[in-house]
Structures are given as structure tokens and as C-alpha cells.
Measured scan of single mutants.
Amino acid sequence: LELTLRVGDKTWHFKDVDEEFVRHLEELLKRGAHEREIEEIIREWLR
């Protein structure tokens, strides 16, 4: 999967994204996660 995600003024483009990561992001967005929380999840995933 490829994913382009825009949060606030930042845009990330990922290739070979894990479906579990996408589901986790979807859940965060559904519950109205704040920009900082989403950025933290992305940084963790990139490690």
C-alpha cells in the first residue's frame, strides 16, 4: 500500500505501508486525534 497523509501543514508519503498501521491511523482519525498524537505515531512507525 502507498499512503499520503496530510496533517496540519505537514505531508507524508509512505510506500509499502503495513495495513495494520493504516487501520491504526484510521482509528486515531475517527476519534479525533490531535495533530501531535498523529505525528508521534508516525515517528514511532518510522523507527
Rank of each mutant, 00 (worst) to 15 (best):
L46P: 02
V7W: 06
K30N: 10
E35H: 12
E26G: 11
R43D: 07
V7Y: 05
E40W: 10
T4G: 02
L28D: 03
A33H: 09
T11R: 02
I38M: 05
R6P: 03
V22N: 01
T4K: 13
D9A: 06
R36P: 06
E26L: 15
L46V: 09
V22Y: 07
D16V: 13
V22R: 03
E35V: 14
L25E: 00
D18E: 09
K30L: 11
W45T: 03
K30V: 10
E35P: 13
E37V: 08
V22S: 02
W12F: 09
R36W: 14
K10F: 10
V17Q: 10
F21P: 00
W12H: 02
L25W: 02
G32V: 05
E40G: 09
V22Q: 02
R23P: 01
E35L: 11
L5Q: 00
H13P: 01
E39Y: 09
E39D: 10
A33P: 03
H24W: 11
L1A: 09
L29D: 02
F21T: 03
V17K: 12
E44D: 09
E27V: 11
E37K: 06
H24P: 01
E20H: 12
G32M: 04
G8N: 05
E20P: 15
I42P: 00
I42M: 03
E39H: 06
D9F: 03
E20A: 14
L46E: 08
L25D: 00
E35D: 10
E2D: 15
R36C: 05
E44C: 09
L5W: 02
L3A: 04
E26Q: 15
E27D: 13
K30I: 09
G8I: 01
R6Y: 04
D18M: 03
E2M: 07
G32Q: 05
E39K: 04
A33E: 05
L1Q: 12
E26T: 13
E27A: 14
I41L: 10
I41M: 12
I42H: 06
K30C: 05
E20K: 15
E40N: 11
I41C: 06
V7L: 11
L46D: 05
L28G: 03
L5D: 00
F14N: 00
W12L: 02
L3V: 11
A33F: 09
R43E: 10
T4N: 06
E26N: 10
V17I: 09
E39M: 09
E37W: 06
I41N: 06
L28W: 05
E27T: 14
V22W: 03
E39S: 07
R36T: 13
V17N: 08
H13T: 11
R47D: 05
K15G: 03
E19S: 14
H13S: 05
T11S: 04
L25N: 00
V17Y: 04
W45A: 03
I38A: 02
H34F: 05
V22G: 02
L28Q: 08
L28C: 04
L5G: 00
I42V: 06
E19K: 15
L1E: 12
H24L: 11
R31C: 05
E20G: 15
G8M: 03
K30P: 01
H24N: 11
F14L: 15
R43N: 11
V7D: 01
V17A: 12
I41P: 00
E44I: 10
E40R: 13
I38E: 01
W12A: 00
D9L: 04
R47P: 04
L5N: 00
R43T: 11
H34C: 05
K10N: 08
K15D: 05
W45P: 00
E35G: 06
H24S: 12
K10P: 00
T4I: 15
E37R: 06
F21M: 04
I38P: 01
T4L: 11
E44N: 11
R31K: 13
E37C: 09
H13Y: 15
L3G: 01
R23T: 07
E19Q: 14
R47V: 11
L3D: 01
L28P: 01
T4M: 09
V7R: 01
